[in-house]
Amino acid sequence: MSTEIATRGRHKEWKASLTSESVLVRWALIVAALGYLTLFLFVPLAAVFTEALKNGLEGYFVSFADPDALAAIRLSFLTASLAVPLNLTFGIAAAWAIAKFEFVGKQILITLIDIPLAVSPVISGLIYVLLFGAQSWLGPWLAEHDIKIIFALPGIVLATIFVTLPFIARELIPLMQSQGREEEEAALTLGASGWQTFTRVTLPNIKWSLLYGVILCNARAMGEFGAVSVVSGHIRGLTNTMPLHVEILYNEYNAVGAFAVASLLTLLAIVTLVAKTIIERKTAPSQSAHDPAWSTQPGHPA
């Protein structure tokens, strides 16, 4: 009896080892992976908070009493509150057109939407300076009418919109494509108007990905550095967003101050990662829900 159990146990071990590497190799890989991640990921993450708290909790909160820091925080929020809704509208419009209709050039549009991701942030800012700056074709006209775009809020918002444009669209397009048009068609046959169909049928089906897209877009909008750096003019208290303020503080050797503001952005990044994990869990199990091949369960009446 005992030999039987022993044999079965060894058999299980043997089967498992068929498709896995030796214990030594396994541990070597884990150590390598964790070592690499520690060096390049965990340590930098921890550093933000340890540096911010170098002067203790009091020192941490003092950093936020600085009016320039507060102005920077306000500007970042303002920029995001303008950029995100606009990109949200774009994302929904583009995803609706792409997912629910067949038209010439659809694939080209999908590829085009990824362009801002491929462009260096400095270039993203440069193009707006060339378009609206003092030396541009529009420059004199803008100066005449006292409209400031570069080195002012509009320029910052534009550059931020450019850089974060694809995020919401990229979340929605594949999802809406996989969901098809049938539910919308059904709603129309039942008498719903276009708007009713969108709000009552489409929107609930995409809500989690939409939420994540907005969170991601917001985090990237508040954290954008390179593009905003080009168009901003770095005027303290006026045209500095949080990342730019971090740079200023750091260059003034105010490490604690810089890391304190940086910690806020880091927390935002962590919230984004948490949101992603939660939403991935929410959207994965519903795949089986609309599997048309699923027919009667055995033993249940039809």
Binding site: G223, A262, T272, L273
Partner: peptide
């Protein structure tokens, strides 16, 4: 760990910049 892999995506580049500098400078942790 799986969730944190995406950190470089979500973290503002300036924050990454100062954090890495702090760590790898002469009196930094590494």
């Amino acid at each position: 760990v799986d969730a944190l892999v995406d950190l470089p995506f979500a973290l503002p580049t300036a924050v990454a910049g100062i954090a890495l500098t702090a760590i790898y400078s002469s009196n930094g942790w590494i």
